[in-house]
Design a protein around this nucleic acid. Structure first.
Lengths: 192, 192
DNA sequence: TACAAAACAGGATGATCGTCCTATTATAAC
DNA sequence: GTTATAATAGGACGATCATCCTGTTTTGTA
């Protein structure tokens, strides 16, 4: 087991977790610093002891997302050696998270979409979340015998399909639509 | 020719056009009332003479979008009677607007995505833009002999694919990716 | 030319934003 | 127990936000 967290480290993690949830549910701009203060139960000064700005909190949130999704990808690689099964595990994540996806959209897609308009500095960091999946998916297509360029194209295709599904389901707040479209995507993977 | 606009009607249209551009480029929340004031060259009081709130301006912007896209759909119906050709006209719109799509994302998708998180009241109105395309696309699939439910599913599928492509291209700011993926989508339509 | 309505003008207002500041208290090493 | 550092505390600050308010000017019509 890894070393226990000190009190400060725990507080820091609490702040990041609160912010992660708020940013996801209300967006980055839609979450005020005061909202983080209230949700965390801490006081303004204390939060600024751990982070020098709200932007800085977002960077920590993105880093946490990267950690968690990396762990997820590693798990999918452990659970199966068949590239197709691994791709299906990716789609299973979408269906498994359907309730949150319908309510708040894709955490990666909506974050990048928001930041891409006016916060390109922050979006550059958030794009790493896309790159993580893009690279991993491409590796699966490579396992299936695709040359590098085609593997990357297929990875982006699958990523785009998933994003489109999440967006439509979010806009219409409809889990049935999400199920319906992920089924189509599963068929696409199976017949590759 | 339609009746000329009165001075007031022209001013009102100017405000809507300024706001439309700003909302698209910077998002709704990212556009301050002051920004609309400066871009339009008018003064605060005058804008409030035409619209009772910023939300009200957005509603007018959505209405203008509805008008323009309706006209576009009508044009595609005039330009071809073949349902496949009409669907391809839809995809051609995506490639034709690639520069703006890469810079600012899809005007319909990014607007709905932003509003869906915390402004569901406004998003309900903006969703009409999705419905417009959804209905029109479904009518094309109906023309191709699909029963109503399947036609609607195919329409949403195509809409979702287009949204996914726009999102990926926007996040990566890459027009090449957009071209590459629209080509795949064109092939899908052609082999229907 | 008189007059009512529309259009234009721009400062005032209170709320909220992210950030900063100086204290006070808790912790840990010596 | 002394001391330095980390953690907690919370009000102050200036900027910006959307909206409101009371005027003045222009326009259209009789």
């Amino acid at each position: 087991m890894s070393a226990a967290l000190s009190k400060g480290e725990r507080t820091r993690a609490d702040i990041v977790e609160c912010a992660r949830r708020l940013f996801y549910e209300h967006g980055y701009d839609g979450t005020s610093f005061s909202a983080i203060v209230e949700a965390s139960g801490l006081v303004r000064g204390n939060i600024y002891h751990y982070f020098k700005s709200k932007d800085d909190i977002l960077k920590a949130v993105v880093a946490q997302h990267l950690d968690e999704f990396s762990a997820l990808l590693a798990r999918w690689e452990r659970e199966s050696t068949d590239p197709k099964q691994r791709l299906l595990a990716f789609i299973d994540m979408v269906t498994g998270r359907r309730n949150d996806l319908v309510k708040y959209g894709c955490p990666i897609g909506t974050l990048n979409s928001e930041l891409a308009k006016d916060r390109r500095d922050l979006q550059q960091g958030a794009r790493a979340l896309f790159d993580l999946f893009r690279t991993w998916l491409a590796a699966r297509f490579t396992e299936m015998g695709q040359p590098p360029a085609a593997a990357d194209a297929l990875a982006l295709h699958l990523l785009g399909r998933a994003q489109g599904i999440a967006l439509i389901a979010h806009v219409y707040r409809d889990a049935k639509l999400l199920q319906q479209e992920t089924a189509v995507l599963q068929d696409w993977v199976k017949q590759l």
